Simulated scan of single mutants.
Amino acid sequence: MSSEDKTLSAEPRSRQRLEPDARRAQILAVARRLFGEQSYDAVSTTDIAREADVARGLINHYFESKRGLYLAVVRQLVTAPSPVADNLPNSTVERRVTVLIDRWLDVVEHNAPMWLTAIGSEAVGRDSEIGQILFEGDEIATDWVLQAARLTEVEEGREELRAMVRSFGSMVRAASREWLVRGALSRSDLHVLLTDTLLHLLHVTYPALRASHEGR
């Protein structure tokens, strides 16, 4: 190889040009992987910039700081990971709930390390910003469930119903650990557990609660 060839080969490759939204999404994807694989303190913005093939200053431009990027990753994962409730089949509630939970498990499985990191922060209970994001995630997930169950127009007992579905969300996080950490449940086991529990809540527990209120 000539000296000129060696010089050319040593030059850094040019960065791919992306639109701002695409570049931001690329940084989030890299950060989601790195924060899932390592602790927060072990990951630097330099690491993220190198893996994403961007200038480190671009991370500050989009997210202000490593902390801001971390919060954005958690928010993306627990509040809007994918359109899991979009285009559900025009079928029975049972079928719609089955599809909803299957899609959600896809999201969790695909992002398992970071998902466990996010819900681990909730367990520690010392990060108010993470707690607020998880609270928002509970409300969004509750909307998904009510959409799947065709209960979005419910007025009587609406707050009780939402509270029950949010409580189910806490079970989802605990059951996810049984699947991903302990290995005590398979994905198919978890799907059965979550589907049956949610349908029982909607078809049996919630109507019983409403009946008890009306009988007072």
Rank of each mutant, 00 (worst) to 15 (best):
D106H: 14
R187P: 03
G131N: 13
L105P: 01
R177Y: 12
H61S: 13
Q16V: 14
A52T: 02
V73I: 03
R24I: 04
D189V: 10
V73M: 01
L100C: 04
V73K: 00
D189L: 08
R15A: 13
N87C: 05
M164A: 11
A208C: 04
S170N: 14
N87G: 09
T79I: 02
L151Y: 00
R103G: 10
E94R: 13
I119H: 01
R17E: 08
E156G: 08
G68R: 07
D143A: 13
R158W: 08
S3A: 11
R24M: 09
R23W: 00
Q26H: 14
R126W: 08
K6Q: 12
Y40V: 15
R33I: 07
G183V: 00
T79P: 01
D196H: 10
R32Y: 05
A80D: 13
D21H: 15
V84I: 15
L28M: 10
L185A: 11
V192L: 12
I130Q: 03
V74P: 01
A208K: 08
L193S: 05
Y40K: 14
E11A: 06
V172F: 04
S44F: 10
S167R: 10
V99C: 05
R216M: 11
P81H: 12
T46R: 15
T46V: 14
V181R: 09
D5H: 10
R166S: 08
L8M: 07
E139Y: 10
G36A: 14
T205H: 13
T46G: 13
V84R: 02
A211Q: 11
T117F: 07
R95W: 00
V108Y: 06
R150L: 06
T98L: 05
L202I: 14
E156N: 15
R17D: 10
R23G: 02
L180H: 04
E19L: 12
Q132W: 08
M171L: 13
Q76W: 02
S9A: 15
R23H: 08
F35G: 01
D47G: 04
Q147Y: 03
E129A: 15
L71W: 03
V204R: 09
Q26L: 12
L180G: 02
L146Q: 06
L18F: 08
I48G: 00
R33V: 08
R32T: 13
G68L: 07
F35S: 01
R187V: 08
S170K: 14
D21E: 15
D127W: 03
L88E: 00
L161K: 00
A148L: 02
F35D: 04
R95C: 07
I140D: 00
V84N: 02
Q76M: 06
D41S: 14
A72E: 07
L193A: 14
S3F: 03
E155A: 15
Y40C: 09
I140N: 03
G215A: 14
R166P: 01
D138T: 06
S2F: 04
L151T: 02
T117A: 14
S167L: 11
E214K: 15
L151W: 00
E122H: 15
Q16M: 11
E139P: 00
L105M: 11
I59F: 09
R177A: 10
T197N: 14
V93C: 09
M1L: 06
A25S: 12
P20A: 09
A49M: 11
